[in-house]
Design a protein around this nucleic acid. Sequence first.
DNA 1: TATTGTTATACTCTATAACTATA
DNA 2: TATAGTTATAGAGTATAACAATA
Lengths: 142, 142
Amino acid sequence: MAKRNDDAHDIAGLLFWVTEQARMGCERAAEENDMTGAQVRALLSLDDLSPMSSLAGHMGCDASNVTGIADRLEARGLIRRETGADRRIKLLALTPEGKKVRDQVRNRLSETSPAGSLSDAERRTLKELLRKMAESEGQPAV
Amino acid sequence: MAKRNDDAHDIAGLLFWVTEQARMGCERAAEENDMTGAQVRALLSLDDLSPMSSLAGHMGCDASNVTGIADRLEARGLIRRETGADRRIKLLALTPEGKKVRDQVRNRLSETSPAGSLSDAERRTLKELLRKMAESEGQPAV
DNA sequence: TATTGTTATACTCTATAACTATA
DNA sequence: TATAGTTATAGAGTATAACAATA
């Protein structure tokens, strides 16, 4: 029992470190593309035609923040706003340019991932563990 | 080779999700303790008597930001500034209250870690993989 | 009445550049 | 001269509350 808690504590510490690395990698990738971390996270979180409130949910922030983030991404031509059947709801969609930038950022994040130091077998194991963690909390499978 | 790249891409996506969860968990823990995410990250990154520039390095931000973050943590009695032998350098140290809050936050992060859904054996495997990822990039072993 | 997005406000984080004190 | 930390500044993210349009 003590062991289990120790493991949980160690993992939390290691996960904190991995998270810090990922956060810095995200900031770096953002800077390289003349964006901010939040804008990159928004770009990576967008599906086709997501209501702004959904994006707020995915980003874990208040809906009022999404207005500004969307404004800036829209001003750069990376996303556009569309009106749905319910005219209160605005749907966000990536433009072709937005998809291009999103893919660039994705590739950059893959390249700089701390998982790069693992062997192929270890990478597969990690992938399965991450998938299990994600699935247990409602993340759509990759 | 294609497989390796696919894995890397999948892992990057899953890692992004895990990172988002961790980021939100950090913000939640911060809010519960009346702090901000950056303040929590600083608290968790502090060793005994870290120069302010070291903290900036750990947090991946400019040194000028550390002044404000340290100001606010110091105002709440969670850290204190000390002057070292080289009197240009200011060393940051956690106060007893700061250590208490740091431990509270740590425990909270352990509780809400997405690794909670794994079995004991899976958790051990994850721990080893994370340790390997961390060690390969100069993170002191836990 | 309730919901979605916007706006106004105040605070924090962020990088850059200029500054002070020390080396 | 060079370095560590501070200050000033401007832009961005954040939550809260009040608001408009729509349901």
